[in-house]
Simulated assay, not measured.
Amino acid sequence: MTQKIALVTGAARGIGLATSKLFIEQGWKVAMIDRDGDELTQATSAMTDGKAFIFDVSVPQQVDQMIDDVLSEFGRIDAVINNAGVADFLPVEETSFATWRRIMETNLDGVFLVSQAAIPALKETKGAIVNIGSISGLRASTLRVAYGTSKAAVIHMTKQQAAELGEYGIRANCVCPGPVKTKLAMAVHSTDIISAYLDAMPLGRYGTENEIAEVILFLCSDKASFVTGQTIATDGGFESTGVGLPALRK
């Protein structure tokens, strides 16, 4: 039985790293992509089935070389997980065009470039694309004019990919994480922010990186063979309920 290959961007930390580890546990090999070479090298140092590829997904020439290198190493690509992303949380009037473009280059352009470059390989394997959106792409929030807009565009791009690539057997879906208990989130979320999130989510807790990874793995697996063009909010119910009314639940 041919071993499957996943390509994961933004794999040096967080959801990307958790996803890479879960795929490896399930018998896949993983091409782990990140532009932070030091962090990526450290993350992959003890892995036998995860290989580091240091590239910036926002640069077209690097993306082309990345795909060539991954195919040279593994010979095939069965799944592409577009996870690489950046964020700056600023008011609309304080968001410079340079900041806007920096976020779009990675969060939106990177998804387009990597997916497009991988299409020939995915045609061969009838593979899957999973784009990582965000709850911020499904509902508006303060300080996220660039980040939220980039993720909303990724959600629609996923539908375009599903519509156009289905005839080749390629599936495309989008996972939209809600508040996730990452090191970065815990460092920047104040007690008031955490309390507000918990009040707004029916499950009343942050998610974990591994819980997001489990959904990604499912969408890349044969168990999801008839699932395409879908946006799955993996968010403890945050998006579905709108405004949290914890007093009414008690």
Rank of each mutant, 00 (worst) to 15 (best):
L108C: 10
P179C: 03
Q230R: 13
R249C: 08
V70S: 11
G207W: 01
A12C: 02
I24D: 15
K4I: 04
I103M: 06
S45E: 14
F55E: 09
I5S: 12
V57C: 09
M157G: 07
L108G: 04
D78K: 03
Y197R: 00
F112T: 05
Q65P: 01
V188M: 07
V30C: 13
L184Y: 06
D222Y: 03
T48G: 15
S72F: 05
L245N: 12
Q160N: 12
A162C: 09
G237S: 08
D88V: 12
Q161S: 04
F112S: 06
R13P: 05
G169S: 04
V243I: 15
T149I: 06
D199V: 07
V30L: 01
N131S: 00
A128M: 00
T231G: 06
I5T: 15
L143Y: 11
G237Q: 12
G14Y: 09
V243N: 12
L217G: 00
L22S: 00
A11H: 02
R205Q: 05
T234Q: 08
M186L: 07
F55P: 10
V154K: 11
F23H: 04
G133D: 03
H156W: 06
V92D: 09
G204F: 08
A162G: 06
A163Y: 09
I33K: 01
N82R: 05
D69A: 15
V80L: 12
G50E: 04
H189W: 15
T2V: 13
T44E: 01
R249Q: 14
A224L: 01
E211M: 05
T125Y: 02
F226N: 09
L138A: 10
I54H: 02
P91I: 11
L17D: 04
D69Y: 01
G27Y: 10
A87S: 13
E39A: 15
V111M: 01
E164C: 09
V188K: 01
H156K: 12
A187S: 02
R13C: 08
T149E: 02
E214F: 04
A12I: 12
A233T: 07
D38Q: 09
E211S: 04
N173C: 04
G207T: 03
F53A: 08
D38G: 15
K223G: 14
L108Q: 01
R171E: 03
G16E: 13
G148P: 03
V57N: 07
D78S: 01
R144E: 14
S58Q: 11
L138D: 08
R76A: 14
G127L: 02
S190V: 05
A79M: 10
S195H: 08
S136L: 13
D222T: 10
R139N: 08
L245K: 15
A31C: 01
S45I: 11
I232N: 00
S45L: 14
C220Q: 00
A128S: 15
I119D: 03
A52F: 11
M104Y: 14
I54G: 02
S240R: 13
P202Y: 04
M66A: 08
G166R: 03
A6I: 07
S195Q: 13
P177V: 08
F97L: 13
G237M: 10
F218I: 01
